[in-house]
Amino acid sequence: MIYFDNSATTKIEDSVLKTYNVASQEYFGNPSSLHKLGLKAFELVETSRKKIAQLMGFKPHEVFFTSGGTEGNNWIIKGTAFKKREFGKRIITSSVEHPSVINSMRQLEQLGYDVTYLPVDKDGHVSVEDLKNALRDDTILVSIMAVNNEIGSIEPIKEIAKVLKDYPSVSFHVDGTQAIGKGLEDQFIDPRVDFYTFSGHKFHAPRGIGFIYMKEGKQIEPLMAGGGQEKGLRSGTENTPAIAAMARALRLLKENEAKKSAEMMKLKTMLVEHLNTLDNVHVFSKLADGFAPHIICFTIDGVRGETIVHTFEDRDIFISTTSACSSKKGLESSTLKAMNTQESIATSAVRVSLDENNTEAEMKEFIKNLDEIHDHFQILN
């Protein structure tokens, strides 16, 4: 089996699963309980919080646990909008965000908020000048992803941060779900950013756990009302074993990060250079600066993306049609649509997404099967 769908989800790492199981069996008390079993669980949660903060360069009290990227994005966007509504209802985002961002914006629009969706260029990047022109006195939030989940374009977070230094009252949120652990921290971690979103299952932690960064001094409204966990901002009994497992997964992710990112880039280069030799193939994920090392989006023109996915699946090779969140709907890539890509091409798009466990032997085998599949469809067309 070759698994090249790591941007959709990753396989939980063996030692991470062990941590999860041990925590489930030995730290089963409710962290809010007053007895020693509760205190033991509470201490594990807080130790995990400190470890995550240390690994990310954050302060422990700036880290809040969630169920994953979707909740994190919803919480930050809506929580900021509700908290700052008396100061304005204008929000700026991009046209290529994850559905959890786009659909949160759509909901806010129904509540009377004014949302600007910045266009992107032919490579999926927003324009800093467009952002400058969109800013107004009543702007309360800018939300731009670090790495696009469909084609891997890296948005100009540092440049946007420079612009927003002159707008200290505007909150700045970055969805870092696809960027973490890819050697890109110097391109999206910036002191001007007020909020980040991360999801554990994108880096070999269990599903259903994630965390957000909220800069010290910033405030958002809670969306989960209840017992007052997470400093009263995110109620619900803490998922202690998943939190501990995520902390371990993050530590493993950060080990030799630069080397692992370079290996992913090597595999990406092998594939992109080969794709560029094939007829009737479009490659949207470039080898240039401004693209992440782990995502390759391409088409075999005239063949629907889901057909390509299932053809590879028949050979025990697993890829996806761009965003996993939308793949079952059979829709064209929202990112490619925003890039003004012809619909017949956009509906042919598939995504290969790598992680540090993929090998050169796997890529060679993938390319061998790619050639056979490509030639088969060229004959049919």
Rank of each mutant, 00 (worst) to 15 (best):
D5C: 15
S7Y: 02
S7D: 09
K11L: 15
I12M: 15
D14L: 12
V16Y: 08
K18N: 13
N21R: 15
Q25Y: 00
S32M: 15
S33M: 11
H35L: 12
H35K: 14
L39G: 01
F42N: 14
Q54Y: 00
F64C: 05
T70M: 08
G72S: 09
N74H: 12
W75G: 01
F82I: 14
E97A: 12
Y117S: 04
P119H: 06
D138M: 11
I140C: 07
S143E: 04
N149G: 13
D166F: 01
V170D: 03
V174C: 03
G176L: 05
D186Q: 15
D186F: 05
Q187H: 12
F188V: 10
V193Q: 03
F195L: 04
Y196H: 08
H201F: 14
F203N: 04
A205I: 06
G208S: 05
G208L: 07
I212V: 15
K215D: 05
E221Y: 08
E221Q: 14
P222M: 07
G226K: 10
K231C: 08
G232S: 12
G232Y: 09
N239S: 09
A242E: 09
A242N: 13
A244E: 09
L250V: 07
R251G: 13
R251Q: 14
L253Y: 05
K254T: 08
E255S: 01
N256Q: 10
K260F: 08
A262F: 09
L271I: 13
V272E: 01
L278D: 08
V281W: 08
H282Y: 12
L287H: 02
L287N: 02
G290H: 08
A292C: 11
I295Y: 01
F298T: 04
D301W: 01
F312I: 11
R315Y: 03
S327G: 02
K329T: 12
K337N: 00
A338C: 00
E356K: 13
E356R: 14
E362S: 07
E372N: 11
N381T: 12
